[in-house]
């Protein structure tokens, strides 16, 4: 059945309806959390939050606040659904991913409510694409209960300094060990792979270090396969904040500046890996 090329009039009642002049403001952020096929979307008056989880251990959230959109309206208090993130990204980038100067894809998004598909209307250069993506029942999401009062150690680094390190992590190591301390080595990333161990040390007075608040020495280990996808968010961001709480839960918050200079956030939460024997330090 042919889909009508006309987006619905604004008067109709949609649970969620939004317009964006440049679809890349949404697609690039979603790519930063695209490590599983499915995502849960939550729309509230503040904006859109897209969550991806894996192994009950890691959660990534992309926040696109309402102010980024040209129009953003949510009828109820909140609207939530599950959707294929791969399909959503293919649709948002239907006209290609390269950004030619001066061209952008305009987007209109409509969601009627529970059980209905998500409708996307994309337009570039007079050509219109209409997408209808089926939605599912949203999953229950993890709650890491991570709040700023429980933070033990926190540093803020310029992303430039970490990008290469994350891209070149020894993936033969099962874990990524993170040490944060008021004393040497201050901030250390370690892997224990087939070759041997590797340590990456950032001194507290490095030019890359924007903030350093470490009160206790903590060493925690995380499954490297779960953290590796965060490299995408790191690549897009200009700054990253790294925080741990008393139980060793890790919070990574990435500050991303879009083409128009607006700021958006992506965050990753990860549980420490309990099931490993003491590795050499």
């Amino acid at each position: 059945m042919p889909l009508s090329a006309q987006p619905p009039a604004s008067g109709e009642r949609y649970a969620l309806s939004a317009s964006l002049d440049n679809a890349r403001h949404l697609s690039s952020l979603l790519r930063a959390v695209h490590f599983q096929d499915h995502a849960t979307c939550l729309a509230t008056a503040s904006g859109l939050r897209v969550t991806v989880e894996d192994a009950k251990c890691i959660q990534a959230n992309a926040f696109i606040q309402a102010e980024i959109f040209q129009e953003f309206s949510v009828q109820e208090e909140s609207v939530m659904f599950r959707i294929s993130l791969s399909v959503l990204l293919d649709c948002l980038t239907i006209f290609g991913t390269s950004s030619l100067p001066g061209t952008s894809t305009a987007l209109r998004m409509c969601y009627r409510g529970y059980g209905y598909p998500l409708m996307l209307f994309l337009e570039e250069g007079g050509v219109v694409t209409v997408c209808k993506i089926n939605t599912q029942e949203p999953d229950e999401l993890l709650d890491f209960d991570f709040c700023s009062t429980k933070v033990v150690n926190k540093i803020i680094l310029q992303s430039e300094g970490l990008r290469e390190a994350f891209a070149e992590l020894d993936m033969t190591s099962e874990v990524l060990q993170i040490t944060m301390s008021p004393d040497k080595p201050y901030f250390r990333l370690s892997t224990f792979g087939n070759a041997g161990s590797a340590h990456l040390d950032y001194p507290r007075d490095s030019d890359l270090m924007e903030a350093f608040h470490c009160s206790q020495t903590q060493t925690n280990r995380y499954k490297i396969s779960l953290l590796k996808p965060s490299t995408k968010a790191l690549a897009l961001s200009c700054k990253v904040s790294i925080r741990t709480d008393a139980q060793g839960f890790l919070s990574l918050q990435y500050m991303i500046r879009n083409e128009d200079g607006q700021i958006c956030f992506v965050e990753y939460y990860c549980c420490p890996d309990e099931n490993i024997t003491e590795a050499e330090l």
Binding site: C91, V128, T129, V130, C131, K132
Partner: peptide, 18 residues
């Protein structure tokens, strides 16, 4: 001219005019 795909998960139609 329209280019269309349709599966269980998704339908996408691109409309070209003139």
């Amino acid at each position: 001219m329209n280019l269309k795909i349709e599966t269980d998960l998704v339908s996408v139609t691109t409309h070209f005019k003139d």
